[in-house]
């Protein structure tokens, strides 16, 4: 049980940034009304960031990871969250064993 100073700084920085996102809306209230392109751009932030984070593993690591990502996408269209994760993990283990 230890805390690395750099890890602590990173966690505190993440916490401060997160609280700022949480509290800002409560105080700007109705003054923030996004429409049209601004709204579309704002709505795109979560999927854009999530995809960017996993793109190296899914597209630039090896064929087992890429094929497993495709299998996971298919699973995600019909299964709940944790079942999708299980399918993805099992398929990457199976595909890696072929290399």
């Amino acid at each position: 049980m230890s805390v690395d100073p750099a890890a602590l700084v990173a966690i505190v920085a993440m916490a401060v940034v997160t609280y700022l996102t949480r509290v800002t809306g409560f105080f700007i209230g109705d003054r923030l009304a996004l429409r049209g392109r601004a709204k579309a751009a704002f709505d795109a932030i979560p999927p854009a960031v999530l995809v960017a984070v996993i793109a190296p593993t899914a597209l630039a690591t090896g064929w087992p990871e890429t094929v497993a990502a495709v299998v996971t996408i298919i699973a995600a269209t019909r299964l709940p969250l944790l079942a999708t994760v299980a399918v993805g993990v099992l398929s990457v283990v199976a595909l890696r064993s072929l290399t």
């Binding site: 999530l50 995809v51 996993i54 593993t57 990502a69 996971t72 969250l81 994760v85 993805g88 993990v89």
Partner: peptide, 13 residues
């Protein structure tokens, strides 16, 4: 290690 990728795909879905 692939659980992140799978979880994020599910979240994006």
């Amino acid at each position: 290690d692939f659980a992140f990728t799978a979880l994020f795909i599910a979240l994006i879905a």
